[in-house]
Design a binder for these strands. Structure first.
Lengths: 107, 107
DNA sequence: TATATATTTCCATAATACATGAATTATGGA
DNA sequence: TCCATAATTCATGTATTATGGAAATATATA
């Protein structure tokens, strides 16, 4: 992963509404949620949400598919995995005992 | 973890120099690095680095101890773990098959 | 075609973060 | 004590980012 992409992803998550949206989609799981549901659940205006969904998409953290008039959004777990890999790169190279506790206990 | 703390941590990492510093300290492992070494390795001015180290510390992503005139910095793996837990919260609740691939393949 | 719903785009203003030079604090050695 | 080294703090001009109103686009239904 290139560094600029990682920074884009981290900046996307470092935002009051977007972190809520991402975590909501993580919880929603494979079923995802349509934009309107997200806006209603989090009490966000449609245009602000649209902008923030676009930023999360550009950051590779969520995906979407159109369903009639609605658009359904999903957390992109692969994007998240790539981001974490970049941040933890070479951590476990010489010192696996320092890195492993980070990964355990997350579930 | 409270949301504002997570946002602070993510914003700390979403920065060209700070992400370099963090990853350098992750690679350095338990031995850490003194500030001067970091500045030299990454070619960062002392005052800029100091400011960015302070931001990373405040975000709970690195720690430090003084060693004579120098200060040694370490990646804070526990802080990282807490951040990831917050982001992935409840992911594995109903759909462990979506969350697990994120955690594997990182090492 | 006309209307309603869902979402996005455009734009202006306000707020925030950034890098740098200069000065300051802290520690160790002569 | 005096000086050198290591790191931090402060002030400031610049640039980036966020927000919300209004308008526009896309799709479905009557």
């Amino acid at each position: 992963m290139e560094k600029n992409r990682a920074i884009t992803s981290l900046a996307a998550l470092a935002h009051d509404q977007r972190i809520d949206v991402f975590r909501l989609l993580v919880k929603a799981g494979p079923g995802g949620m349509i934009a309107g549901q997200i806006a209603q659940t989090l009490a966000i205006r449609a245009n602000t949400l649209s902008n923030n969904l676009n930023i999360l998409s550009g950051a590779g953290l969520i995906r979407s598919t159109r369903e009639g008039r609605s658009i359904r959004y999903f957390a992109d777990m692969e994007g998240m995995r790539v981001l974490l890999s970049f941040l933890m790169e070479d951590c476990c190279g010489g010192h696996p005992e320092q890195c492993q506790p980070v990964l355990n206990q997350i579930a």
